[in-house]
Design a protein around this nucleic acid. Sequence first.
DNA 1: ACATGTGTTGCATAC
DNA 2: GGTATGCAACACATG
Length: 622
Amino acid sequence: MKPSPSNPVVLYWHRTDLRLHDSPALHAALALKPAVFIPVWTWDPHYVYRARVGPNRWKFLLECQSDLSQSYSKLNPKQKLWLVREAPQTVLPKLWKQWQVTHLVFENDTDAYARDRDNEVARLAEDAGVEVIVRMGRNLFDPDHLVRKNGGKPTMSMTQVQKAAEKINNGQPEKPLESPTSIPDPWDEGKMDLSNLQQDMADANLDLNAVHRTTSDKQYSHIMGPQKNFSVPTMEEIGIDPSQAESPHRGGETAALNLLGSHIQNEEYVGTFEKPNTSPAAFEPQSTTLLSPHLHFGSLSVRKFWWDVQSVLEKRKKQKKNNSSIPTNIPGQLLFRDMYFAAQAAIGHRFARTYGNPVIRFIDWHLQSSDPQGNDSENENYHKDSDEAEIWFQRWKEGRTGFPWIDALMRQLRREGWIHHLGRHSVACFLTRGGCYVSWERGAEVFEELLLDREFSFALTVGIHNLTEKPDETACNVGNWMWLSCTAFFSQFYRCYSPVAFGKKWDPEGLFIRHHCPELSQFDKKYIYEPWKAPIADQKKWGCRVTGDGTDSVQHGKVYPKPMFDFDKRRQICLDSMKNAYDVGLHGDDEEVKSGAWKERFGWLDNSENQGKKPSKRQKTD
DNA sequence: ACATGTGTTGCATAC
DNA sequence: GGTATGCAACACATG
């Protein structure tokens, strides 16, 4: 067979679409009636080394890849997902040549990094005479389209999203497409072999994920993988001990569709779902759908989710049953996802950081990210302006703040890769405006590493040699952090979550705390949210002393740390500081922020640690 | 221009 | 135990 317009050789590039159902790009690829069809995944070493990815996230991704590969094999025993170990910018041109590719097809990705990457790939394809076909498939509505219908501006409120969506198709997303029932062959085995190719690699010394590896990363030993068969890597091959990935949440399209199906059967749940009325303390079973990781990895189509839910809502409507409504119902949750995507699509790289970000309020946080222009010391990605705040941040990250509600949530995050939305509110508020006064960027990085469902991001800007750029953290994760820290999207900073009262409202017995902080399991419910108040005699009786900062190894029996600060005092300091920062009224793209002159406006002296402590009254400037 | 109502999800207190 | 309020008060949408 000779490749030609009538015999197309189609390379399908899977990225954020690890599924066969409802993929407009895959549909377009198969509509070409390929003589040869090769679905690939490019394991970009720059991403592997530079994106923060914890063990649970790796495992979930591998499960998605395995499931997709098996689905291809079921439709055509000669087929699978062909995994290539190299950056797309270098390996795709080699593949086009080797496999005589006529068409490259992929799903559109409006993330800032992805845009740069895809523009570069499209340029290379044009040079090579390969036709590129791109389709929107990741969102309810094309984020760029939403932005255009929002007057070219980032979508900063739900009202704006709804109005823009109304102008696209009366607010109706496209209906989902069926999975293909047959898949064409790849080349025969000999032609698929890439043994003659040189592998371009990244510098493994820049591996941010080395901390998670127990052995060396072996998956890059060959461009076709360690087995030289394009296989999905094992956890062992990427150097991570599988016992470190304890999450009960399973990846893959099959798992996603099963989970969606089981929720859809529960019509009462789907019809009456109201996010603020779902418990952040519920476990076994959890109170929300757990489908967000599948949206994140593309193992579930958001339009399939939307329309399956709509069918339930319509049925209930006919039965004269009450449904909950936007924004608290399930479709509302999906629209928030599109809101963050479209906001990022309008703003680009600046959306994921403070410096230069036009939509973000500037707050004088502790531990702010270093200026990307390099005004700070070069080896730190954030400014350690306060030893105290750095300690608070580490204790928060490791789940040893001494506030059981916060610690239980942070331990759940690390262990399971997922916490309930309101739990995320609690820990995010606590780290930023309602406790530590630490920059939201620090929290977003921790979530990026540990959450299964923060939206996909890649490590570098265009040009695979530029490894100094801060990784993008992308839309939903950074958007929610801005929301909770009251720097964008939301501003009512006087609504402050208590690490004691909020959890108690949902779980007065403290079952959630007992589950994730087992050293406290015997405490009476009177003290479970405030164990430092329990009398010493009771602490002894219940087998756990409240002492130290959580770093002490086992003393005499079990210990739980003392609270790292007086919350009520910190709350007042944070409120005053937020008020002051709002009065100063700077935004991320103001010249004073970029130049560092903001320090003067906030009354900072060199080397002072007074922010978040003694706010000075400032006059409004405009 | 300006006032008014609303905004995915606060807390403590009072009845 | 639900519901209203003060807290000290922002940003957006709409008339």
